[in-house]
Design a protein around this nucleic acid. Structure first.
Length: 271
DNA sequence: AAAAGCCCCTGGATGC
DNA sequence: TGCATCCAGGGGCTTT
């Protein structure tokens, strides 16, 4: 569900609104992927400073410690003055004097984890292995990207998805970026030439940046911070289009399985 | 070190 | 209408 663009759109939607808020109460519903790691009551009285993003994690900075939030496959966050009654899938509320930040996550693959700091062992375990930020032009460079790919024999789609070379590229945008770059998803990463890696580098950046501009994709569960759903149509050229005509050459789009995840591509446009 | 599988969980779509 | 089956945007952990 939420890939980098959806997480970033979520962050942009409430970061400024929650900055400076004082925590009044914390409510934990059903267990999420991991335990919170602190007595909820111990957060009361702390202040929210700002909200950052690393890969698909949101980092909610407090005046003491921070919350790592992950939306998993089906999570979405809302921030509202009056949150109303919690529903069956509302599993975490951060009640502040400026509004309530609420995580809704039917599948509960998401998480909220408190850590004292980014050098906390729990933070390192979750964030330490992450690759570079694709939208950070200084960190994400075509020649470094190509060098990293040369060390990997796995199919390029799975390396993109892995998150240890570059973060944030999920199952939808991996297929879309590879289509934009004209690269077959099954091609071993090490066999992507420098010119083609350069093209893919640009395609990843453009695909993600465009999605952020458009407010993210809404397929199933994702909705933005105000709960709006379906406003943002995914402009997918290959994702979920199996059997349909390629928008460039009319060849039927193919669907294959790679590491238990579906991949879509055009057999004519992608070599 | 890297790659491949497994698994967490619920709900919606599809097929009989 | 009811029930079984399959599928879903992630990613940490364990095993090769």
């Amino acid at each position: 569900m939420p890939e980098l663009p959806e997480v970033e759109v979520t962050r942009l939607g409430f970061a400024e609104r929650i900055a400076g808020a004082r925590i009044l109460a914390v409510r934990a519903g059903k267990p999420l992927r991991w335990p919170l790691g602190i007595e909820p009551g111990a957060l009361v009285g702390r202040q929210v400073l700002d909200v950052r993003r690393r890969g698909k994690y949101l980092l909610v900075d407090l005046d003491a410690g921070l919350l790592l939030m992950h939306l998993g496959m089906s999570g979405s966050l809302r921030f509202a003055r009056d949150a109303g009654t919690a529903g069956a899938h509302d599993h975490f509320d951060l009640v502040t004097d400026l509004g309530t930040l609420r995580l809704n996550d039917p599948r509960r693959f998401g998480a909220v984890v408190f850590v004292e700091g980014e050098s906390d062992s729990r933070a390192i375990k979750l964030l330490g292995g992450l690759g570079v930020e694709p939208l950070d032009a200084l960190a994400f460079r075509a020649d470094d990207f190509h060098a990293a790919l040369r060390r990997r024999k796995a199919p390029i789609k799975q390396v993109l998805l892995g998150g240890d070379v570059v973060v944030g590229v999920g199952n939808i945008y991996a297929s879309e970026a590879l289509f934009a770059a004209g690269i077959r998803p099954t091609l071993p990463a090490a066999r992507v030439s420098l010119p083609r890696a350069t093209k893919l580098h640009a395609a990843v950046r453009a695909t993600l940046a465009r999605a952020v501009e458009r407010g993210g994709s809404t397929l199933r569960d994702f909705s933005n911070i105000d709960g709006q759903n379906g406003h943002f149509q995914l402009e997918a050229k290959v994702y979920a289009r199996a059997g349909q005509a390629c928008l460039v050459c009319a060849t039927p789009i193919r669907k294959i399985l790679q590491g238990q995840r579906s991949t879509f591509y055009c057999p004519t446009c992608q070599k």
